[in-house]
Design a binder for these strands. Structure first.
Lengths: 189, 189
DNA sequence: TCGATTAGAACGAACGTTCGATCTAGAAAC
DNA sequence: GTTTCTAGATCGAACGTTCGTTCTAATCGA
């Protein structure tokens, strides 16, 4: 049983490496077999096809990301506290999971698989729902300026992802300062 | 001569469509030949390899983008005016060139080709140089808050790109308001 | 007629996938 | 305790397909 899980994980790990190092267009099953130490046959024992494998990898990565974003979050935080907390979590995740970050970038822009279902699953999460109640313009019951949701997203999580790509890590002080700048830019009042 | 250019352009157009619709991993030369109306032989008459073709496409797209960003820009604009102007240009470009935007996303995150040379060529442009003198923290001679360059980029052009991906277009008023919000967020004073 | 341009058949290599053989570990039977 | 059975895990050669690319012969414009 342990063997089973290990091999499956090893295959996904190897595919993550492969996609990050060589790109979707150059990640053949032969290389995956070599890298993961699993024969082609065994890969197809665990995954019905290459597409399913990559989608499974995406789901694993997305789950890790989701957990990381909400780590330490509690429901009694104010909207401002929530945003600052999750924003720092996001930066930390992208910073400590650079391979995963690069994979997500590539997966989401490649159209490799449909993403609509994935997004629906994400937004069905009760914690996400709760936060989304605040993260919208004041006139819709939230606490933010009247900005389009894409702007909110880009100014917060998009910024965290961009900062994480910088060669050097930023200090917690710098990050907090940036997060507060962002908060004042998007919050009403 | 006109024929020659037309055919070459038709090939690049078809590849753009193909990559946007099916992704880098599923854009074979056979499909390109069908779509562009050029036989494989002709394609290899104009481009030495698939890699070169895609890189040529990237350069064409990047050039269009560069031109669009600086359209109407003049050297006597203030830093604030420059940013607002270029920001609106960027939004308009991403909005009216959605295929190109999707291609750039994919190309840049796929690691299909080395991008270092391309970036160097970009930053060698005298107009870009001039603007970059202003777009940096005050303590380095610019007019901005002390934010990392990645933050500046994400908060300005990254935001424009994100907004352009929204299903509906935003009015010029809304956009100007957003641009001004961004300016106050990143400018010193 | 001659060089440039083109179409499309053809190439070897590499692709994703399949398949029968083999191995392994633990349950069942005695 | 030993043997038998079995279901899943594993392997790697092989399959048919499709890939990127090349080649040859036909066509075109001068």
């Amino acid at each position: 049983m342990a063997k089973k899980i290990d091999k499956k994980a090893a295959i996904l790990d190897a595919m993550l490496d492969l996609v990050v190092k060589r790109g979707f267009h150059d990640a053949p099953m032969s290389a995956l077999a070599r890298k993961s130490g699993a024969s082609p046959g065994v890969i197809y024992h665990y995954f019905p096809s290459k597409n399913d494998l990559i989608r499974a990898l995406y789901q694993r990565v997305a789950a890790v990301k989701h957990r990381a974003f909400f780590e330490g979050y509690s429901h009694d935080m104010s909207a401002r506290e929530s945003l600052l907390h999750i924003w720092l979590n996001a930066y930390r995740f992208y910073r400590t999971h650079r391979k995963e970050a690069r994979f997500l970038d590539q997966y989401l822009s490649s159209g490799y698989c449909k993403t609509s279902e994935d997004e629906e699953a994400e937004s069905a999460d009760p914690t996400v729902k709760r936060i989304m109640k605040w993260m919208r313009p004041k006139k819709h019951g939230g606490v933010l300026k009247d900005l389009p949701p894409e702007a909110i997203d880009s100014l917060t999580l998009g910024l965290a992802a961009s900062l994480a790509k910088a060669p050097k890590a930023f200090s917690k002080d710098t990050l907090t300062r940036i997060a507060e700048t962002v908060w004042t830019a998007i919050a009403e009042e």
